[in-house]
Simulated scan of single mutants.
Amino acid sequence: MDVLDARIVANRVGNRRRRVLEAMDVPRSFGGHCHKEVQESLVAQSSSSKSDQFTWKSLWALTVPNAVKTFSWKACYEALPNKENLRKKKVLEDTSCPFCLREKETLIHAIWDCPAAQDMWGCNLSPFQKCSWEVFSFRELFERSIYSFDKDKVELLVYVARAIWFRRNKTLFEGFFTHLDEVFYGALKALAEYKDCQQMEFPHNSSASNLNQNAHRAVWCLPPSGFIKINWDAAKIKADAHLAETIAALGEVKFSTEAGFFDAICEWDATKVVADINSEPPYLSNTSHFIENIHMEKLRLRSCLFVFAPREANLAAHTLAKEAICNKNYMCWLEDVPSNISSIVFREASVSLDP
């Protein structure tokens, strides 16, 4: 069995901005009881009152998608369907948190106080690790953050809060569990991508369809500060594609440990391999042996994320892997760029780094 893999390693430099890949989807329905609760809240307290102006101006001025602003606004008005709110509406009786099973599930508990949420806020990627505020509502959390943090950090806070809420819903209603580092990285990445999209300049004569295609074009982006990103792909000769990608994944984790990259993000364009590696044991596929070895190697790292990237965002590694089929010799470049992918790397660098 012959499997050829290609890897591209990148490190984030300083505080330079990363490139946008995608925009968050906008939820269309929050439930009738939530809509009614917002209306009741608006009658009791107008969001345009003088005492609230700074809070709402700060919220609507954030550079985040409208879906995140809407989520934050509803959360400030306690208008999301947590168990305590549903009890008040006589929808259910049991208000115990489905994760910690100790406290009743209020909104601030689900997003901030619950140990499951605190694990998210304290993960390796989080700048909120030392933030141990005792707050009693999401609005209090938001108002305290706008007085304590700069705008970028507040934007990350509301993005992560929404990600925690959506992770809670996926776990409860779909039985789909996502690792906390992956959720936080996804929020961090999506926020940077959205900001860069807002800064993209298009010719005035561009059609709406062209603008839409450009806005959703996937491109490579820098990893968070302190992390190494390893982009890789595999070219198969005698192995099936899925097996080839899995064997290459094992090689990437070993490469990371041998090179001393103890905080790594492994990114590639094989959806099924990503799903297999991020799934819970037992591993029942024909690649289970390699998956188990990947997790054994992963224990040697401090933090290692396995993330899917569209082909367009993994083009350099994909091109290098295809070229490797025609070359039987082992080749390695350090602080240099192979000539056959130089144009791709330089183009990605030009859109991933600020001038």
Score class of each variant (00 low, 15 high):
residue 21 L to I: 15
residue 9 V to F: 10
residue 127 P to W: 06
residue 282 P to K: 12
residue 264 A to P: 06
residue 199 Q to Y: 13
residue 342 S to T: 05
residue 332 C to Y: 05
residue 281 P to N: 06
residue 320 L to Q: 04
residue 69 K to L: 13
residue 208 A to V: 14
residue 308 F to E: 03
residue 212 N to T: 08
residue 95 T to Q: 04
residue 351 V to L: 15
residue 265 I to M: 02
residue 187 A to E: 03
residue 350 S to T: 00
residue 10 A to E: 11
residue 159 Y to A: 15
residue 149 F to C: 12
residue 251 G to M: 06
residue 298 K to N: 10
residue 266 C to H: 14
residue 133 W to L: 07
residue 28 R to F: 11
residue 132 S to T: 06
residue 175 G to R: 11
residue 298 K to L: 08
residue 143 E to D: 14
residue 128 F to T: 08
residue 93 E to A: 12
residue 45 Q to T: 14
residue 206 S to P: 09
residue 41 S to K: 12
residue 112 W to Q: 03
residue 142 F to N: 07
residue 189 K to F: 03
residue 44 A to V: 03
residue 161 A to Q: 08
residue 165 W to F: 10
residue 345 V to K: 04
residue 70 T to C: 11
residue 233 D to R: 11
residue 137 S to K: 11
residue 144 R to H: 07
residue 272 K to S: 09
residue 196 D to Q: 13
residue 118 Q to W: 07
residue 217 R to H: 07
residue 217 R to F: 08
residue 280 E to W: 00
residue 1 M to H: 13
residue 299 L to K: 15
residue 294 I to W: 06
residue 239 A to S: 06
residue 173 F to D: 01
residue 151 K to D: 05
residue 197 C to H: 10
residue 171 T to N: 03
residue 218 A to G: 11
residue 159 Y to G: 03
residue 96 S to V: 14
residue 74 K to L: 12
residue 208 A to G: 08
residue 120 M to Q: 06
residue 122 G to K: 14
residue 328 K to S: 15
residue 163 A to R: 05
residue 278 N to A: 13
residue 55 T to S: 06
residue 345 V to D: 05
residue 184 F to G: 01
residue 23 A to I: 14
residue 49 S to I: 12
residue 112 W to N: 01
residue 17 R to M: 10
residue 77 Y to T: 01
residue 179 H to I: 03
residue 261 F to L: 12
residue 54 F to V: 08
residue 33 H to T: 02
residue 123 C to H: 08
residue 286 N to F: 12
residue 48 S to R: 02
residue 75 A to N: 01
residue 251 G to E: 12
residue 137 S to D: 12
residue 29 S to G: 13
residue 279 S to I: 00
residue 158 V to G: 08
residue 148 S to M: 13
residue 342 S to W: 04
residue 314 N to P: 05
residue 245 E to T: 11
residue 131 C to D: 15
residue 79 A to F: 09
residue 192 A to K: 09
residue 159 Y to K: 04
residue 24 M to T: 14
residue 215 A to M: 12
residue 38 V to Q: 00
residue 204 H to M: 10
residue 346 F to T: 13
residue 302 R to D: 15
residue 237 I to T: 14
residue 319 T to D: 07
residue 4 L to D: 03
residue 188 L to C: 11
residue 333 W to T: 02
residue 166 F to W: 01
residue 201 E to C: 05
residue 174 E to A: 09
residue 107 L to E: 04
residue 336 D to I: 02
residue 324 A to D: 10
residue 24 M to K: 15
residue 243 L to Q: 04
residue 345 V to P: 07
residue 289 H to W: 02
residue 28 R to M: 12
residue 186 G to A: 10
residue 239 A to T: 05
residue 302 R to S: 15
residue 86 L to C: 09
residue 308 F to T: 06
residue 257 T to C: 04
residue 3 V to E: 05
residue 72 S to K: 12
residue 265 I to E: 00
residue 297 E to D: 10
residue 94 D to Y: 07
residue 266 C to F: 15
